[in-house]
């Protein structure tokens, strides 16, 4: 793959994944209460930390999404995106195995918006792969004089 093409592809994937994260955070930021119900319905966490997840996770999603789009500490944003998507996928997988079709809370905070959990797992996997790729395979600087001092600042 030619280097310019790789750079453009990397940028495009980062922007698309970032936009998805920003979009996913919007409803939860507007009103975190329904999101609490959704986390509760996953039946994975004890009551205590459920609220903490609802309070902080949407902000992390928003910041990671913005970071991926604008390129601020993009590898770190991609690492967070990968970690979150891995967590979401495992949570969905557990409920898929249990046979529970939960409202995933991915893009909507409606607890009536339920889907087949296996399909949700399948939907998460390409995004997880993209996030891992963005994290582990940033394009090499084209020109050392213009490149950031460390790949981690890319």
């Amino acid at each position: 793959m030619s280097r310019p093409f790789y750079r453009w592809a990397y940028l495009a994937v980062a922007v698309v994944l970032g936009a998805i994260f920003v979009y996913a955070s919007a409803g939860k930021l507007a009103d975190p209460r329904p999101f609490v119900t959704i986390i509760w319905n996953y039946r994975l966490l004890p009551p205590g930390p459920v609220n903490l997840v609802a309070i902080f996770l949407p902000w992390l999603e928003l910041l990671v999404g913005i970071g991926l789009i604008v390129g601020f500490k993009r590898r770190a944003a991609a690492a967070w995106a990968a970690a979150m998507l891995a967590g979401f996928t495992v949570a969905l997988l557990i409920n898929a195995v249990r046979g529970l079709d939960v409202a995933c809370g991915c893009f909507s905070t409606s607890s009536e918006d339920t889907h087949n959990a296996w399909l949700l797992v399948l939907r998460d996997l390409p995004m997880l792969a993209a996030a891992v790729w963005l994290w582990l395979c940033p394009p090499r600087p084209a020109d050392a004089r213009l490149a950031p001092a460390s790949p981690d600042q890319a």
Binding site: P32, P46, P47, G48, N51, A54
Partner: peptide
């Protein structure tokens, strides 16, 4: 929201 799951 309550910080620690109260009312949940």
């Amino acid at each position: 929201l309550a910080w620690w799951g109260k009312g949940l």
